[in-house]
Design a protein around this nucleic acid. Sequence first.
DNA 1: CGAATTCTGAGGCACGTACTTCAAAACGCC
DNA 2: GGCGTTTTGAAGTACGTGCCTCAGAATTCG
Lengths: 344, 344
Amino acid sequence: MQQTSHPTLIDVARLAGVSRATVDRVVNRRPNVRAETVARVRAAMEALRYRPDPLAAGLARRERYRFCFLLPAGANAFMAELAGGIDAMADWLARSRASIDCRTVDVFDPRALAAAIDALERSYAGVAVVALDDPLVLAAIDRLVADGVPVVTLVSDVPASRRSHFVGVDNSAAGRTAARLVGRFLGGRTGSVGILVGSLSLRDHMERCFGFSQLLGRDFPGLTILPVAEMRDDPALAAAAVRRLAAEREDLSALYNAGAGNEGVAEALRAADPTGRLVFVGHELTPASRAELLAGRFDAVIAQNPGHELRSAARLLLADATGDAVIAEQERIRIDIFIRENLP
Amino acid sequence: MQQTSHPTLIDVARLAGVSRATVDRVVNRRPNVRAETVARVRAAMEALRYRPDPLAAGLARRERYRFCFLLPAGANAFMAELAGGIDAMADWLARSRASIDCRTVDVFDPRALAAAIDALERSYAGVAVVALDDPLVLAAIDRLVADGVPVVTLVSDVPASRRSHFVGVDNSAAGRTAARLVGRFLGGRTGSVGILVGSLSLRDHMERCFGFSQLLGRDFPGLTILPVAEMRDDPALAAAAVRRLAAEREDLSALYNAGAGNEGVAEALRAADPTGRLVFVGHELTPASRAELLAGRFDAVIAQNPGHELRSAARLLLADATGDAVIAEQERIRIDIFIRENLP
DNA sequence: CGAATTCTGAGGCACGTACTTCAAAACGCC
DNA sequence: GGCGTTTTGAAGTACGTGCCTCAGAATTCG
């Protein structure tokens, strides 16, 4: 029954005319095997199409992998969904003998984030962190990596650090996507376009802003870009800014919110734009932004799938720990566009 | 070290004051255990947070799962990507002791598809099929299910059959999404809109068409919907249809292709609409549609991620076979919108 | 040639579970 | 009390690999 049941290490040993131990040495690239013997074993492996049973291997090497996910504290709906998704992965991870500790930290404070990273136990098999592009944070990440703990950045990157991967989207492209939609939805109308962000010191907000302005300025010359308004992801501040923009510029034709706080924007829009003529594009699919899309007050939402990002980060850390290969295509996070009709 | 290393069946037995065998009986719901004993064992499992080690369990029950994926033959780029993606899952599946046999069949012929389904070995632990909504196919699927082989439909559904899941998108919603984009991109312009499909007997094409017409008619009364043109996913026929539409209707302002054959549309567009005023929305991200988006001749592409669909189908079949739970959110296939700026 | 080194074989323990067998104990019933 | 049935315990084998030890063979080197 060789064709149905998978070949084992013993089958390889028999075919190659060597012992179990020698096959083991070859498979696990241990030293002290003659080149000629290696070749014979390799040939036998080829012939039988031998693949080490991952279950038995995992059982035998009794390692367990503990990972840590460092997420921003706060009421941000997107981040809340991230945190909530971690539990959903528990079963999934147990299958690979892995587990995740989740910690939260104030993400607007580089000092606190760096301290939190420094405080992490070095026994972790890997760490995923929603980072902040700041020298302090960069140094902390590099220290962690230097101590032998692989790091992936999640959602927000620190490109210059020694993290092994970034799991997230190209935020410049996301900004350009928003700009294209705003421009096309305006369909040739002219006017001014307002931009809101959480903070320009957040790399992702800044990049979106940059991409948005760049494309809008180049491809839609009829539109005037207004100065960027910062609002710390605070719905109340966002609402105030929207009201101010609507009052000051009667030619206001579109709004782009590169940050969070869409609830505030929505609230202000209800008052400032009762007819819904104003084109609005924001980020992240939350209960609030979803409801606004359905109500027709938001025209499009640019999003990234937090579940995919979590799983991708976990897979990458796991691959780092076990030495397995990764499917690159699967780990590329896409820039999702949601309108009223394709809400999940 | 009880808190770091996971508890085993033996730990549970010790705590419950019973033997290994009894714990095994409880864990695997075997008969002949007194209710009171079951409760004691359950309590011990709770207390220790015992979870059976999936690796050891998998090793002990020496089952292997063979699945079969039945895909359409033909040069269709989307389907080719589907087929190609199966190999990429091989490693992934080996980890769960599963493997996939991939077979192809002419999807336009219900009789052939039904015969292919009937010819499948009943030893498969599950089958995924790109189905065709036809009574013959439905009956064949139901026969397979009756023989104890779980079936999931992939991309194209047979809702009335006894398949356990459908992995794919809501094509009516996809059509509505396309309509919204066409309408918004036209930005108030009036004119007529052409619709192309592969075949109206294909459920997914028909549903897209339906969703598209429905929303366009309701929300964009300034646009006239032209009669649907069928073209068997043939680029040459598509090109001819586009040329004919462009010639006959000088008010043609947008085109929607609900089927494949985008290469043909692109070729015809180059000639018929050199200025790029015509709004075009199509389906599926292929090298061709990608290039057209970048060139600016296509305005948007509605897509589904074939890799996700494959993995989802595999996960669902695996869950069916092992009795594991599925993460519903993860298995919902999203309707992707791609424009020039958010191409992956 | 002898010694040191490099290879190889044989065997065993461990991982944590599934599944089996057999005997002993507990229980119900008449 | 005796019988039959249900429940439980004890013990074992098996799954396929990682990792270990130790002895003996083969090879190289001085």
